[in-house]
Design a protein around this nucleic acid. Structure first.
Lengths: 250, 250
DNA sequence: TTGATAATGATTATTTTTGAACGAAAATAG
DNA sequence: CTATTTTCGTTCAAAAATAATCATTATCAA
C-alpha cells in the first residue's frame, strides 16, 4: 500500500473516531511504526491533522469554523512553538503591536488571559481576541479584503499616535541584508510598527530565513530579536547586527 | 490516553460542571495526580481555565458572543423593512457612514452588491461586508467588546478625516427634543458622523419614537431624515424641524 | 543490466512524558 | 495562633515516543 492510499485511510479513520494511534495504525496498515510516524508528520505538515505523542487527532474540533482560522493551519506545530516562545516574552501591562501575518495570528491563543493591550491591523487577531482579557485597539483605515487587514496612510498615521513596549511582526523573508516583503503596503506597516515600539520581535519559521524576495524595505538594525525554529548555525551572520536569536523548541 | 485527548475531556467537564478536582480527575482519566496537576497547569498557562487549590474552575462564565446577533434578530421583519427603504437611498459611488446599532447592521445584506464605500466603527458590519462589492473603511481606536464597536478619541479623530455623502445611524431614543443615547461614547460617535456627512438618516423602529432616555446629546437639526415603521401621525411634530419622514412599508 | 532515486525498515541516541519521593507552602481544624 | 492535613513544586528515574542515521528494497528510465 502506497502513501496516497494510506493517507486516505488515515484521514478516514480520523474523521470517524477523532484520533489515531501509531501502534494500531502500523498494525492495521501493515507498515512499520516509523513509516506510520512519517505519514502522520507529513499530514501534519499539510495541516490535515494535529500530531500528538503516540498518534494524532483531528484539527480543532472545538474551534469555530471561521474563514480566518484556515490560512494559518499550515506548519501549525512549528508556528505554535514559535508563538509559545513569543508569549513567554509578554507580561501583564505590556502594550504590544501585532501585524497581519499568519504566524503572528497564532500568538493570540497564548495571550488570551494576559492583562495587556494589543494594537493591531489584523481582523483575524481582533476576532480571536474578542472574548479575552486583552484590551484591543484596532488600527483604522482601508480594509484589504485579501489580507483581512487594514492598510493605507490613515493606518500609518494611526500607528504613529501610539507607543508599544513590544512589537511582534512577520516578514516574507529575512537575510543579513535585512527584511523583505511582497508588497509596499506590508512594508510600510511593518516599518511604522517598528518605529513606534521599544522592542521589536520578528516571528519567522525556517523557510523565511535567508529568503530574499521582492522588496528589501529595511535593515536588520530596526529589529531587536528573531524568534524562529531554524538552526542557530544558519543565523550566525545575523548576530553581528546585534539581533538576538531566540530558538523555539518544537 | 495522551494530553490532547485529556485536555479535551477536562475542558468538556469544566464547561459542564464548572469545576474539576485533581483527585477525581486522576481517577477518572486513569492518571496519577501529579500528571493531572501538570495538565491543569498547562491549560491554565494557555488561559483555558483558572487554577485553584485542588482543582480548577471555568475561566469565562459569561458567554456572550451571540448577544449581538440575538439583539439584531429581534423585530427582524420591521428592521428589514426599514433597511430596505434605506438601501433604496444608496447608489453606486456613495460614501456612507454606518454606526454600530443593531438596526443599521441589518442594512448590510441589502447593500452587498453596490459599488460604494462604507466607513464604520462596527465590527459586525465589517465582518458582514467582508465578501461583498463594498469597499470598507474601519474606524480605528479602542474596541468596546460589549458593543463590538470602536470608540474613543482616536475614533472621533478618524471620523473627522473623512466626508460621507450619507450617514445611516441608530439612536436609543428620539423625540421633538432631539436624539437620545445611553452612553457618552455612542453620543460622541453619532455626533461626529453627523458633522461629517452631507445627509443624515436615522433608522429607528416605532419603539424608539418619543422615547427620551439618559442623554439628550443633539437636537433634531443635525439630522435630515428618519426612516421608520411608525405611524406618520406620531411624527407630525418632527416635521417642523425640517426632518423628512420616510415610512417603511412592512 | 545498470545506475539513480524514492520509499521503507532497522538501529541508536535524544527527547518527551509520566510517576514517585520528599520538602515546602497553603488550607483547614482545633 | 498552632498543629495537622492537604496540596504544590522540584528533582530524579523509568518508560515511551521521536528524530537521526544508515541500510535495504523497490521503482523507473536509459
Amino acid at each position: 500500500m502506497n502513501f496516497p492510499k494510506r493517507k486516505q485511510k488515515i484521514i478516514e479513520q480520523l474523521s470517524q473516531s477523532g484520533e489515531v494511534d501509531i501502534k494500531q495504525l502500523a498494525a492495521e496498515l501493515n507498515i512499520s511504526e516509523i513509516t506510520a510516524r512519517r505519514d502522520l508528520n507529513q499530514l501534519a505538515a499539510d495541516g490535515l491533522l494535529y500530531r500528538t505523542h503516540g498518534g494524532a487527532t483531528k484539527v480543532n474540533p472545538h474551534e469555530r469554523p471561521h474563514s480566518f482560522v484556515n490560512k494559518s493551519a499550515q506548519n501549525a506545530t512549528v508556528k505554535d512553538a514559535i508563538c509559545r516562545r513569543a508569549a513567554s516574552q509578554i507580561h501583564n501591562g505590556d502594550v504590544i503591536f501585532m501585524d497581519c501575518g499568519s504566524t503572528v495570528f497564532r500568538l493570540c491563543q497564548f495571550i488570551k488571559n494576559k492583562k495587556i493591550k494589543v494594537i493591531t491591523n489584523s481582523l483575524p487577531v481582533v476576532y480571536e481576541l474578542q472574548d479575552s482579557a486583552v484590551s484591543v485597539n484596532i488600527i483604522g483605515g482601508e480594509l484589504d479584503k485579501e489580507r483581512q487587514a487594514v492598510h493605507g496612510t490613515t493606518a500609518i498615521e494611526h500607528i504613529q499616535k501610539y507607543r508599544a513596549t513590544k512589537a511582534f511582526l512577520g516578514v516574507d523573508g529575512i537575510s543579513e541584508a535585512g527584511l523583505f516583503a511582497n508588497s509596499e503596503y506590508e512594508a510600510s506597516i511593518t516599518t511604522a510598527f517598528a518605529a513606534n515600539s521599544a522592542f521589536i520581535y520578528i516571528l519567522c519559521d525556517a523557510s523565511k530565513i535567508s529568503k530574499e524576495t521582492y522588496l528589501n524595505f529595511a535593515g536588520l538594525d530596526i529589529i531587536n530579536a528573531i524568534i524562529t525554529d531554524a538552526d542557530p548555525e544558519r543565523l550566525k551572520g545575523f548576530k553581528e547586527s546585534g539581533v538576538v536569536i531566540l530558538k523555539a523548541g518544537i
